[in-house]
Computed example of a mutant assay.
Amino acid sequence: MTSLKLRDLSNNEFTSIDDGLSSFLFGNNCILKALDLAYNYDLGGDVFESYENESMSCIRYDLQVLKLERTSLGTRIPNWLGKFKNLQSLSLSNNTIDGSIPASLGNLSSLEDLDLSYNALTGAIPTTLGRLLNLRKLSLRWNRLEELGEKCFIQLENLEVLNISHNLLKGVLEESHFANLTRLNSLLIGNNEHLSLDMKSN
């Protein structure tokens, strides 16, 4: 079905994907714009599989929306997700994804909504996320992230919602971190025991 633009398989009881998720994305589905597998609670396992060394079948991919929330993914975020330059919305929330956030996500220059909340991500919030100039919503809450890059958010002028609450972040957030975020209307940073603010009262 090489002309298919939308695959909505959400809210089912799938327990596996033959050949892994990469077969859905890297085959001949060059014009696929949206893939929704959310709320298949027992999908689980490593649906991403290892696809790092495989060649891409299409010169360009049109994928704009990828929803995998609440699918019990017990894996890491693969570097190859950074190849989908047209991706506008990526949701991997409410899984058991561990490991670090790959720097390659900074290549998703069209991304507007990134939700990696309610997982077991560790390490640092990569400074490459600061290249996502179209980002409007970023949710990293309820993980185990520990480090906050000094220039993670400073260039995200379109950011409206930033949620980094309920992590293990440490350090100091200063006014300079938010100097360019003129559209920011929601900032959630609570439940980071070693994270503090250094800002003027006004």
Rank of each mutant, 00 (worst) to 15 (best):
M1T: 12
T2I: 01
T2L: 04
S3W: 02
L4G: 11
L4K: 10
K5Y: 05
D8V: 14
L9E: 02
L9S: 05
S10H: 05
S10C: 04
N11C: 09
N11W: 10
E13Y: 13
F14L: 15
F14T: 10
T15N: 04
S16R: 00
I17M: 11
G20P: 07
L21H: 05
S22G: 14
S23P: 08
F26A: 07
N28L: 11
C30S: 11
I31S: 13
I31R: 04
A34K: 14
L35C: 05
N40F: 12
N40T: 10
L43A: 09
G45A: 10
F48G: 05
Y51H: 15
E52R: 08
S55P: 07
M56Y: 10
I59L: 08
Y61I: 06
Q64F: 02
V65T: 12
K67D: 11
L68F: 08
L68G: 03
R70K: 04
T71G: 04
I77W: 06
I77H: 01
W80G: 10
L81K: 07
G82D: 14
K85T: 12
N86Q: 12
L87S: 05
L87G: 03
L87T: 02
S89P: 00
S89L: 11
L90M: 09
S91N: 15
S93M: 03
S93A: 15
N95S: 10
N95C: 12
T96E: 11
D98A: 11
D98P: 00
S100Q: 12
I101D: 05
P102K: 08
A103Q: 09
S104G: 01
S104R: 01
S110R: 09
L114Q: 07
D115T: 03
L116N: 04
Y118R: 05
N119W: 08
A120K: 13
T122Q: 13
A124W: 02
T127I: 14
T127L: 08
T128Y: 02
L129F: 10
R131L: 09
L132R: 06
N134T: 07
N134H: 13
R136K: 14
L138S: 04
L140M: 05
R141L: 00
L145I: 15
L145T: 03
E146V: 00
L148W: 09
E150M: 06
K151T: 13
Q155H: 15
E157Q: 14
L159V: 08
V161D: 05
L162S: 06
N163M: 00
S165P: 10
L169M: 06
K170M: 10
V172P: 07
E174S: 15
E175G: 12
E175C: 04
S176H: 11
H177L: 10
A179G: 02
A179C: 01
L181R: 11
S186F: 02
L187R: 03
G190V: 05
N192C: 09
S196M: 03
L197H: 03
D198L: 12
M199F: 14
M199K: 01
K200P: 11
N202E: 14
